[in-house]
Design a protein around this nucleic acid. Structure first.
Lengths: 352, 352
DNA sequence: CTTTCTTGCACAATCGATAGTGCAGTGGAT
DNA sequence: ATCCACTGCACTATCGATTGTGCAAGAAAG
């Protein structure tokens, strides 16, 4: 219990205490001592002192010298959504298991904010970056490349580096099929009674819309364009779209394909504003899985994207150092109504 | 378009280009140039060069020298939960607005992981730390204090530094009252029909249980101890508790106080395993708000903790530099069933 | 025409690590 | 006895910033 308070011990402190040079102390404490032919007894002595004085390396100094920080970044659109928060959770576990430090930040789908955020991360010399659901992946790429930062896209593809995304087309087909299957028994669904809400002009939305339309075409032979209502990824915009539809048609569509759980919140807002409007007979399919969303009073099919596989694939591509802008598809899973999946949340320690 | 690729420009590069010394360049670019009496024209010249060469400071170097990093940490139990993810979102916005960089990490309620995580953050010289929902706030305090790191507790109090928490007692009273009010109209609720599930022996749980019991006592005159089922914060444990209750009693309680939305997921799992078990007549109150959780097929009252105020208060306490371990209560709000609140999610940019 | 400020900047030390290089000492081979 | 290889470590430059201090030139004061 010497200098317990205030200042942290440095290799120079330990150098004085041990009678060795700072470089020896450094080598011992960062594991390169065998390569530097330090005697084992010297190493053990220094390690003992380090423990005693609670030495921990100053990672900024190390990072400055080695121009690597041990930080790995994940850029998200938002935290506050189960899809992205489960991604953060999975990412974090993965990065920690590699002995690095995860940094998760959100940039709210604003291209300028995305770029600035990445510049900040670069200024901290992060080692790698996973770019999830970015509005402008290629703009970010430019910034990363200028700094020599390894990066990869996930969720939404870019055209400059590899991208790992879920198979939105097939996912949308599964989801649309499930919706139709669920509805038909009683009175058959008319094409105009199955509508898609949400999404915008990004790759994922386009693919989902394509899958949706292809299934509609196959099953119903018709696929009216006005059944597609892009609203962006905003609950408010989505609510407005539902409201507009409702004002126009006097009711909601019997069957809904909702482009993401964020858009689903728009439906919630609509329902809150129209508490007397019966919704028990509608069928919803929502891209993205949310455990509570799965237990609405009406049937909700959801698509659970395989976040674990996507993260794992992303890291393996980063490790391989591939630069060809290929797109890797990961199959998502259809989740039937009233399903509570286990997730990263279960990693929580709770013995009790 | 000179050295656009690879190496980033440093103050030394700009020093050569501008003909000024590195220290002058540094002063100009970090804003202290007026204090150092640099001529405005010199400053402008250097700023121009900086822009032209896309200079951004190496924040590790700055941090090393000034032993401050510009990083502010938030330690969470988990990301994948709307309460904590909304906290992350709010925190992030707050930190960014102060020109610092947010670092959000989770430690899964494991005291050892909490401590190690904080040590890592300290090794990066983070400037401040907000400790949310930690299992061992005082253990973390020890680590922080030894490093001279400013920190504060949120959500769960510690005994060494100030804590900002929601008023769990009053929140639980509101919630319990709302549950009872909602049920009574038809056939009155018996004391053993209102049970509390979830939580463990932490401050928040104890306060919530205290509030729950006090209202039960007031309204019903009785408050059997077996109506309290602590399960920890784990969906699986909570599911097991519901299962056990169900096996014992043949049904779920008519009215449920659920200690957190994480525990609520345990109820979902129970329901998924018992799809034929009618749940339409139960009434649930859940501490924590989740928009989808609010729209179940049965009425769900929720408590929305005022994350914005808590974060704001936490930062103001950090800024004041208070060290007295006082506890500050923030009033939460009761959210009636089928309510879709706007939240940090709405900060998302989406003009469309 | 000195002395004294003030202006405007340069110098150099420093933060805490990493890594290339060099050098003394030991032991074996010739 | 000489040469050489090998062991074990110390020296030193370096990463890119910040900051206390010093100093020359010009302005103002005497």
């Amino acid at each position: 219990m010497k200098n317990q308070l205030r200042k942290k011990a440095t290799i120079y402190d330990l150098s004085v205490l041990s009678g060795s040079s700072p470089s020896t102390v450094s080598a011992v404490l960062n594991g390169t001592w065998q390569k530097r032919r330090i005697k084992q007894s010297t190493a053990e002595h220094i390690q003992g002192l380090a423990k005693e004085h609670q030495y921990t390396a100053n990672l900024q100094a190390r990072g400055l010298r080695s121009s690597r920080s041990g930080l790995v970044g994940l850029l998200l659109p938002v935290h506050d959504n189960r899809y992205f928060s489960s991604m953060a959770q999975t990412f974090e576990a993965y990065v920690r298991s590699r002995g690095q430090c995860p940094v998760v930040v959100s940039a709210r789908r604003d291209p300028e904010e995305e770029r600035q955020t990445v510049e900040t991360l670069i200024a901290y010399s992060i080692d790698e970056l996973i770019i999830a659901g970015a509005t402008d992946p290629d703009g970010i790429h430019t910034v990363c490349e200028a700094a020599g930062l390894k990066h990869i896209n996930i969720d939404l593809p870019g055209s400059k580096v590899p991208s790992v995304i879920s198979d939105n087309y097939e996912g949308a087909r599964m989801l649309t099929t499930a919706i139709i299957d669920r509805v038909s028994p009683d009175r058959p669904l008319r094409p105009d009674e199955l509508c898609l809400f949400g999404g915008r002009n990004d790759f994922a939305s386009r693919e989902r819309i394509r899958g949706f339309r292809s299934v509609k075409q196959e099953f119903m032979g018709k696929d009216p364009a006005q059944c597609i209502q892009p609203t962006g990824y905003s609950p408010t915009m989505t609510e407005k779209a539902f409201e507009a539809f409702y004002q126009r048609e006097g009711k909601l569509p019997r069957a809904l394909f909702i482009n993401s759980s964020i858009n689903f919140e728009g439906l919630l807002r609509f329902m809150a504003k129209h508490p007397d409007e019966p919704v028990s007979d509608i069928v919803v399919g929502c891209y993205d899985y949310d455990p509570f969303g799965s237990f609405m009073s009406f049937p909700v099919f959801m698509i659970r994207q395989d976040v674990e596989s996507m993260i794992a694939k992303a890291f393996s591509l980063l490790d391989e150092g591939l630069h060809t802008p290929q797109v890797y598809l990961v199959a998502p899973k259809l989740v039937p109504p009233r399903t509570a999946l286990v997730g990263p949340l279960d990693a929580i320690k709770d013995i009790e």
